[in-house]
Design a protein around this nucleic acid. Structure first.
Lengths: 248, 248
DNA sequence: GCGACGCTTCGGCGCGCGCCGAAGCGATCA
DNA sequence: TGATCGCTTCGGCGCGCGCCGAAGCGTCGC
């Protein structure tokens, strides 16, 4: 039995607590959140986003690395950290989904918040109004199906995505291409995660329709993107970056 | 725009930290883990599983309830707590998935660990060797497709499940029934979560093929279950509760 | 080679949070 | 009605962990 159960890690409570405690420090949480942009950041940058001094950040990062929440690549004197896996990103998503279901909180908001809500990266795919707008457009057109338990690309969807420049075909395989529904914490609805979501984001970046905003996870839609999304997805994106279905 | 972005909860780092810090206490983590059995437990029972005195447990539970990780129902002098939502269960799963990817740890194991690995509830569906065995049997027979980004019941699968006593048809809808792949932390492979997984578990409990083990999340397979799983799923479950495909 | 910079380690400090015994309140039962 | 039980609140205690300035090491650029 190659799949004989692993019996070495059975005490789930303490294991969960250990990981959660690491994420439960505000400085570390801020760092992990910043790494949700999908890029690698230096220790100094992470100290800055964590709001702590460099020595403190060093300690935090050592812990995150030891626990395999982040991985580090050294380039000269620079140490670049990124999230260790998509599982870590999903864990953070799960925490966020629970947090937004929590007790009402009044928090001041600013321009950065609007920008994040309009469009941002959720690790490797698009989120916010734009991410949800894309998911809505694709489902409305019958190109994708999404519900609580999952999603898939339809036959029409395959064709559409191929024309859009995304080739998800697996040679000789007749398997359905699944879409991972990812709960969007600002919109409280699904955007598309997984391989399809990542491919969509990649393609949009590649077309120059969207660009990353420096020092933040926000994504801005370019003028080319405004017309591209309108034409290909029937989405209108206004001057403030808000996404809505195009009026018929 | 009814779906106008919520702008009140934008500072994700602190939000995530708050929830994670709650889960990061060992006593609270143990409580939440116990509630992953899918049943409600009293404050006293939770004090016991948390390994703390009743006054301490009271404080912990108040925090969990305030943050809406648990909900409480009062029956006379008994206070029954359960997980507040499936989102909370998924969050805990996500933490566990990351934890088992963490650094190697040596931990003593005992009979309870074996039992949990063999078969247990993961909130509302089956996990462990049995849960993964079921998923494998269903995929092997082409009744279900599962991969990293999702899963779905095939046409054959619909028929099979209907015959098995699970009716997932949605009246007049041609939508595909998706299966949520849930990463099994003891097997390190997918078992089936979501509505399909829950329905499967329900049905097996209903048939008396499996029974809950008192004071634990472990699930034991009954003699009726042993023959039932063999006949319906081609699974052999030995005296120790280990699940394997039946030899051809 | 030297100074600047990124990063880590060290040591001391202070704060927060979980701990439990005692006490109190309300529900249950004989 | 009185005793028992489940649960919560209160108050004091101790421990752990994050904080940062100082110092040290290695890399980089002039």
């Amino acid at each position: 039995m190659a799949h004989r159960a692993r019996l070495a890690v059975m005490t789930t409570g303490p294991l969960i607590a250990e990981v959660a405690a690491l994420v439960g420090d505000p400085a570390r949480a801020n760092m992990l959140t910043a790494l949700m942009a999908g890029k690698a950041l230096t220790a100094s940058e992470l100290a800055y986003v964590g709001g702590v001094a460099p020595p403190t950040a060093s300690g935090h990062l050592a812990k995150l690395a030891q626990a395999r929440l982040v991985v580090v690549a050294t380039q000269g004197r620079h140490r670049y950290f990124r999230l260790a896996s998509v599982q870590v990103a999903r864990m953070l998503e799960g925490l966020m989904a629970v947090a937004v279901d929590g007790p009402p909180r009044h928090r001041p908001t600013g321009p950065r918040d609007k920008a994040l809500a309009a469009a941002r990266t959720c690790y490797d795919h698009l989120a916010g109004g734009l991410g949800v707008g894309l998911a809505d457009a694709l489902t409305r057109r019958g190109l994708v199906q999404l519900d609580d338990d999952g999603g898939a690309v339809t036959d029409d969807g395959h064709r559409f995505l191929a024309e859009f420049g995304i080739d998800l075909e697996q040679a000789g395989r007749s398997r359905r291409i699944f879409c991972r529904p990812c709960l969007d914490w600002s919109e409280r609805r699904w955007h598309i995660g997984g391989a399809v979501g990542a491919a969509l984001a990649d393609r949009c970046f590649g077309l120059g329709w969207i660009a990353r905003v420096r020092d933040t996870r926000a994504v801005s839609v370019t003028p080319a993107g405004r017309s591209g999304f309108a034409e290909s997805f029937g989405l209108e994106i206004d001057e403030g970056g808000q996404t809505a279905p195009k009026a018929a």
